[in-house]
């Protein structure tokens, strides 16, 4: 058993950050650009999975259109940096933040009709929202329409790009983690357990769910922004239903409600397709066969995912693998 010393969350985050940076410098010099790209897509996936987990795992509301929110963020950030901010990489953090804000506004609009009734209407509304976003982009010529949006400004080297992604991921993680552990997270959990009892305690169900979706949308937009500046090219096809499903499966695999679980699952599911790439499947994306099978089997065999609601350390403690 390993003994853990008690340190505050912020110190932990700081240690994490420094560790990641040192790792980044090492990676910068020793690994090829293929691994670099995988690493950054892992972090983008993790941001998206965390964002979805917040609404689905904590607020118990299904979103099937996270790719649509991601698209809003990606196109916002790309447009802003190209049209407004003279296309300099220095402004990327700024445009990504703006992308988050714009996307959270879209999330607010989506939330208006979605929580009028109890039930899974958010799933359908988000599904439709993603479709509408896709159609709008297809018909919007100044962002390339179906051809996609080209030559979006990127960071000049891997180290910067990596550092930025790490920073965004850590902030996303810490914010959502803290919210989960705060009064607000407790409210969400209570309304998951019994929404009628929660209402009688004076808890505003609609407002709580709405806020959760707005927060989730904010980070989905941020994730989209990071994605746009990582690849430098986005198209409506980059944000298909497949992506929504991929984000969903990450959140579910890691454990709905577990923030560290999402990060771990994002890691596994970023590597997995690279391995699966070698399988012969013709034109069909083999992920779309493997993912649903994983989803169904997991719901039957281990519905709580890898960690359940617990965070990594709590999980290890519950198994008595480490002591605190």
């Amino acid at each position: 058993m390993i003994r853990m010393i008690q340190i505050s969350r912020w110190t932990q985050a700081l240690i994490f950050l420094i560790g990641f940076l040192i790792l980044g410098i090492a990676l910068h010099f020793f690994l090829n650009s293929y691994i670099h790209a995988i690493l950054i897509s892992f972090m983008i996936n993790a941001i998206m999975a965390l964002s979805l987990n917040f609404i689905t795992g904590l607020a118990d509301q299904f979103s099937l259109g996270h790719a649509g929110l991601m698209a809003v963020g990606a196109y916002t950030s790309a447009l802003l940096s190209k049209e407004l901010l003279s296309d300099h990489w220095f402004f990327i953090p700024l445009t990504v933040l703006a992308a988050g804000l714009v996307t959270s506004f879209v999330g607010y609009l989506v939330s208006l009709p979605s929580f009028k009734l109890k039930g899974d209407y958010l799933a359908i509304v988000t599904l439709g929202m993603a479709e509408i976003v896709r159609v709008l982009i297809l018909n919007w010529n100044s962002v390339g329409g179906p051809r996609g949006y080209n030559a979006i400004i990127k960071f000049p080297n891997f180290l910067l790009s990596y550092s930025f992604s790490v920073f965004v991921l850590v902030v996303t993680f810490v914010v959502l983690f803290r919210l989960k552990k705060s009064w607000y997270g407790r409210n969400l959990w209570a309304l998951n357990e019994d929404d009628i009892a929660a209402e009688v305690m004076g808890l505003d169900l609609v407002q709580s769910k709405r806020n959760a979706f707005i927060i989730s949308s904010f980070f989905a937009g941020i994730g989209g922004g990071v994605y746009a500046h990582h690849l430098g090219y986005i198209s409506p096809g980059s944000f298909s239903f497949l992506i929504s499903v991929q984000i969903l499966i990450m959140a579910v695999l890691g454990g709905l409600g577990s923030m560290s679980g999402s990060v771990i699952a994002a890691f596994i599911l970023t590597i997995l397709p690279e391995v699966l790439r070698s399988l012969p499947t013709g034109s069909v994306d083999v992920r779309m066969i493997v993912y649903p099978i994983i989803l169904i089997l997991m719901m039957i065999l281990r519905p709580q995912g890898l960690l359940g609601r617990m965070e990594l350390l709590e999980f290890l403690r519950s198994k008595n693998w480490i002591r605190s």
């Binding site: 505050s8 969350r9 810490v174 914010v175 803290r178 919210l179 552990k181 705060s182 009064w183 607000y184």
Partner: peptide, 10 residues
């Protein structure tokens, strides 16, 4: 009375 910020920043 809670504020989001207090929760975030512990």
């Amino acid at each position: 009375k809670h504020t989001w910020l207090d929760s975030l920043l512990e």
